[in-house]
Write a protein that binds this DNA or RNA. Sequence first.
DNA 1: TTGTAGGCGTTATCAC
DNA 2: GTGATAACGCCTACAA
Lengths: 336, 336
Amino acid sequence: MLRVTIKDVSREAGVSIKTVSRVLNNERYVGAETRARVQAAVAQLKFRPSLAARSLAGKRSFQIALICDNPSPYYVYEMQSGIRDRCVEEGVRMIAQPYDRDSATLIEDIENLVDATSVDGLILTPPVTDYAAVLELLERRGVRFVRVSPGGDVALTSSTFIDNEAAARLMTEHLIALGHRRIGIVRGHPDYATSAQRFAGYAAALEGAGIARDDTLVRAGRYDFASGSAAAEALLDLAAPPSAIFASSDDMAAGVLAAAHRRGIKVPEQLSVAGFDDTALASVVWPPLTTIRQPTRAMGYAAADLLLAGGDSPAERREVGYELVVRGSTGVVSPP
Amino acid sequence: MLRVTIKDVSREAGVSIKTVSRVLNNERYVGAETRARVQAAVAQLKFRPSLAARSLAGKRSFQIALICDNPSPYYVYEMQSGIRDRCVEEGVRMIAQPYDRDSATLIEDIENLVDATSVDGLILTPPVTDYAAVLELLERRGVRFVRVSPGGDVALTSSTFIDNEAAARLMTEHLIALGHRRIGIVRGHPDYATSAQRFAGYAAALEGAGIARDDTLVRAGRYDFASGSAAAEALLDLAAPPSAIFASSDDMAAGVLAAAHRRGIKVPEQLSVAGFDDTALASVVWPPLTTIRQPTRAMGYAAADLLLAGGDSPAERREVGYELVVRGSTGVVSPP
DNA sequence: TTGTAGGCGTTATCAC
DNA sequence: GTGATAACGCCTACAA
């Protein structure tokens, strides 16, 4: 397999190897004419630099990795797509590293990844985005990383996020405005900071409206269909069941809708259901659902953007807008 | 950042660099005691070889890529997970390359990937698995690749698949056995070989039962929710609507169920619905669904296995079993 | 069974 | 502005 190398290009263009390298890396101090000649030769020979060689000799590896452990394939897909979009623009590859959240070797795996591939950076999604051991490791090793939807310790590192609390509050206020007073909530997975954030928004809305919170209406969930379904069953079993249920994720909203459907409860006539981060499951399959649309793809794109930005640019928090989608009619709420 | 190199290990173990390398690559001709000493040193220093250096110097890059363009996030997720599982065992990284099917630069993108990363191989999923231009390119460049669910030209390259025709036939025969005579089908995306294979199974079952095929019951689809829903609407609008509908994918089955639901048609009392490759959408959200369970994850695992197997092992076709799931009760049908 | 020399394709350093 | 030359960390080929 005959590989085209810089050497070939340099010969073709009649310049030195180093000059070709300069053009490739967009360095200064290259004559306009020389640059053009080199670029022509590159195109002519279809030269594509070897990532391995670049990585070995230089400081960059032109690869980033996504550390993703999420129960929702839609979330993963959207996240990957967003990151991919930005990577393509930059000529960078994405290593997808799906992880088991329970893996006892998570730290070691990540360290392995970092050492073996010398990735230019990592993108962390919940819940790993808040694992102190991981953050500490990356910090110590001097590896760049961007956190998606982090909980605490937000000042130090770059991150992308939406204002989960404000969004959940908006959604809950919407339910209150519809006249609901007994609003149930299915919380997200306890390991995810977003769960607490969304619950806080729910609680704040109730408090703002002067509605005393009834903790029998607060149910634990795990961000998946099954837990949403089970929680809804429990809520609907109450002597005084809620008239509205706010599920902290789309999968759970689908579970709630399924439970209602099993009991012959009409949505939204007899029960209002609200969701979060609609993907395809709940909002498409069972349309009568009001939801917060979280731009997962945009968060991925932004995360990659932050990662690829500057070698030593300061930590930056980038907020992404969300939408409140009321039964299919959309109102843009907060694109910052 | 102080990198631990082979040199450090060799010093620690009191052997030459080459000997360490031999141990790392599981080569023969290393004394048991020497090997143990080296392994101890590796563990001691937490040595992790640089992929870049290995790739540059050797023949392998320890990276493979997944060329995936599929409308179903579940499919992508399962596929990636299966491949990942096998890669982890082998210490290989996976580069995820989601592609736009319509991309005019697909060929160039893949060539780019191959040249830049020197991946040890590629895994192609439908519909790219049947793109002649891509296959020709890889063949010409001498790059190993494995096709998932290919259509034609199957003899030359390794592939993993299920017997889509037999599965669809089984499913259709099941519907016939239930007494159905007017069975509608929503075909898959025309670019996917699996669409034709599943339709062939449907047709064969009808013919085997001596039922004349009514082409008004055959509808085009695109493997997604919307097309399944639209096709079902059309079928249910017929003067003589079908009593059963076979959707060629899970997303489309969900669409069919949604359409039935909108019209207040009870499933399965008034309409039987059958699906294929249940993921979470149709079969979980709307349980009364009989379906063929395609082991996407297993196909991914098998594909990676074939790819990582031997450097010059011959092409091998690996069939994976499927299950017919009848309303939740499972009968294993064909694990080869 | 083990060790030595050379090179993989690129970037970094330092002259010119 | 441009060009030699030395790394980068490992594997291949060959020698011992």
